Computed example of a mutant assay.
Amino acid sequence: MTGPALLGPADVRKLAGDLDVRPTKKLGQNFVHDPNTVRRIVTAAHLAEDDIVLEVGPGLGSLTLALLPACKQLLAVEIDPVLAARLPTTVQERAPELASRLHVLEADAMRVKADQLAAAPTALVANLPYNVAVPVVLHLLAELPSLRTVLVMVQAEVADRMAAGPGSKVYGVPSVKVAWYSEAKRVATVPRAVFWPVPNVDSALVLMTRRDSPDANRAEVFAVVDAAFAQRRKTLRAALAGWAGSAAQAEQILIKAGVDPGLRGEQLTVDAFVRIAQQR
């Protein structure tokens, strides 16, 4: 099989024109129009033939067409009703032999529930809008335990935060919460020229591999994380005072958890945050 005819710059603009679609900042729409880029994304996702892939924000279908030959089923979640309605037609025109693999759900990915999907996805592969990338990934990892791998294209700065480890200047709330679910690493940089319209930032691919989450109450641990980074220049003793009831109580909890009260949140692993939450 030679594979579908992928969308190039002229195809993307024509399709958008036919649909009277103008990319909006509100939805964070930047359409990929470079076939080599979508092929790179599919390669970086390391998909198996039996994978059921979830794609968030398929847009005009550039990545969708590249993903279809590489998986068993493709579940596309699209918030824009015009784009959601058109996607099956685009696939039917360019890859009719693969059209039966596609299932489109018109929905907001931030509110998608497992029972709305046609099957349990094993991989998330998506070009995510910059403004909602982190909350979408965290929501889907929480809602869909069947997800084993995640490969997302996000703003380069966001990619660095998602994949950062303790001690890094960009290590923060997204880093710790992503680490609760997975091991994350930045795997490639994507130039801005492959998008229409051209964004004013570079993008990057982040690969996340699901790990066993800690044996603890996620909401309680995340509350500690949020408190620790709300005032990231403060020591944990001071930053966790509100959460613990007072600075003195925070210090006692930290000592019991084996954590130096003089440290800052950016120096702690997710497992250290778990120990703190369990001492309250």
Rank of each mutant, 00 (worst) to 15 (best):
Pro121Asp: 00
Ala123Leu: 08
Ala123Trp: 02
Ala123Tyr: 05
Ala123Asn: 09
Val125Asn: 08
Ala126Thr: 08
Asn127Pro: 03
Asn127Ile: 03
Leu128Tyr: 08
Leu128Val: 04
Leu128Lys: 06
Pro129Ile: 01
Pro129Gln: 02
Tyr130Met: 00
Val132Ser: 13
Val134Trp: 11
Pro135Tyr: 11
Val136Gln: 07
Val136Thr: 15
Leu138Pro: 08
Leu140Met: 02
Leu140His: 05
Leu140Asp: 00
Leu141Val: 00
Leu141Cys: 00
Leu141Tyr: 14
Ala142Cys: 03
Glu143Cys: 10
Leu144Lys: 09
Pro145Cys: 04
Leu147Ile: 11
Arg148Asn: 10
Thr149Met: 03
Val150Arg: 09
Val150Ala: 04
Met153Gly: 05
Ala156Lys: 15
Val158Lys: 10
Ala159Gly: 15
Asp160Thr: 10
Arg161Asn: 02
Arg161Ser: 00
Arg161Met: 00
Met162Gly: 01
Met162Val: 06
Ala164Ile: 00
Ala164Thr: 01
Ala164Tyr: 06
Ala164Leu: 02
Gly165Ile: 05
Gly167Asn: 09
Ser168Leu: 01
Ser168Asn: 06
Ser168Thr: 09
Lys169Tyr: 07
Val170Met: 03
Tyr171Thr: 13
Val173His: 14
Pro174Val: 03
Pro174Ser: 12
Ser175Leu: 01
Ser175Pro: 04
Val176Trp: 13
Val176His: 13
Val176Ser: 10
Val178Glu: 13
Val178Cys: 11
Ala179Lys: 15
Trp180Val: 01
Tyr181Ile: 04
Ser182Gln: 12
Glu183Leu: 11
Glu183His: 14
Glu183Pro: 07
Glu183Phe: 01
Ala184Gln: 11
Lys185Asp: 04
Lys185Leu: 01
Val187Ile: 14
Val187Gly: 09
Thr189Lys: 15
Thr189Phe: 13
Val194Gly: 09
Val194Lys: 12
Trp196Gln: 07
Trp196Gly: 03
Val198Lys: 15
Val198Ala: 07
Asn200Gln: 13
Asp202Arg: 14
Asp202Met: 06
Asp202Phe: 06
Leu205Asp: 06
Val206Tyr: 09
Met208Ile: 05
Thr209His: 10
Thr209Trp: 09
Arg210Trp: 02
Asp212Asn: 12
Ala216Asn: 09
Asn217Val: 02
Arg218Pro: 09
Ala219Lys: 15
Glu220Ile: 01
Val221Trp: 13
Ala223Arg: 15
Val225Trp: 10
Ala227Val: 07
Ala227Leu: 08
Phe229Tyr: 13
Phe229Ala: 11
Gln231Glu: 10
Arg232Lys: 14
Arg232Met: 12
Lys234Asp: 00
Thr235His: 03
Leu236Ser: 10
Leu236Trp: 06
Arg237Gly: 04
Arg237Cys: 02
Arg237Ile: 00
Leu240Val: 04
Ala241Ser: 13
Gly242Tyr: 07
Ala244Leu: 06
Gly245Gln: 05
Ser246Glu: 06
Gln249His: 12
Ala250Gly: 10
Glu251His: 11
Glu251Ile: 05
Ile253Gln: 13
Ile253Val: 11
Ile253Glu: 04
Ile253Lys: 14
Lys256Gly: 05
Gly258Cys: 00
Gly258Asp: 00
Val259Glu: 12
Val259Thr: 02
Gly262Thr: 02
Leu263Met: 14
Glu266Cys: 01
Glu266Ile: 01
